[in-house]
Design a protein around this nucleic acid. Structure first.
Length: 115
DNA sequence: ACTTTGACTTGCA
DNA sequence: ATGCAAGCCAAAG
């Protein structure tokens, strides 16, 4: 599957072990739930490694991975950043039953999921 | 090997 | 509440 290929790809990278860790966590996000970079980072025992989580997401975007729903990962603000269709992600989340507030941010208090 | 940047977060002004 | 700065780990130049 795409994930294996991706893992194999990053397997060459020495310190990308936690990358796979991030993918695992994100992959476990159930439908209708979202999580934040900070939460994932915290789950990885790296409370300040949120940016690297974002890096992993970026890698997913390029790898077109469907096992790892990056669209369910949002920032602490509940919104989304990145040149890759934030609108599409929002729509995708809406399709999964995730509610957005009037400001277009995910209601983390409702859908926030943490491992 | 060093510097800059990045799908971030938090703190202080 | 808004704005700027620092901190953090890792990858790319």
């Amino acid at each position: 599957m795409a994930l294996s290929g991706l893992l194999s790809l990053i397997a060459g990278m020495t310190r990308s072990e936690f990358y796979a860790r991030v993918f695992e966590i994100v992959r476990q996000i159930p439908v209708g739930r979202v999580t934040t970079y900070g939460c994932i980072a915290r789950a990885l025992a790296m409370p300040h490694g949120a940016r690297q989580v974002g890096w992993a997401m970026a890698a997913l975007r390029d790898s077109d991975d469907d096992d790892v729903p990056a669209h369910r990962v949002v920032n602490a603000e509940g919104g989304v950043r990145g040149g890759w269709s934030a609108e599409v992600r929002r729509q995708l989340l809406l399709d999964e039953g995730i509610a957005f507030d009037v400001e277009g941010r995910v209601r983390l208090d409702m859908h926030l999921w943490e491992p």
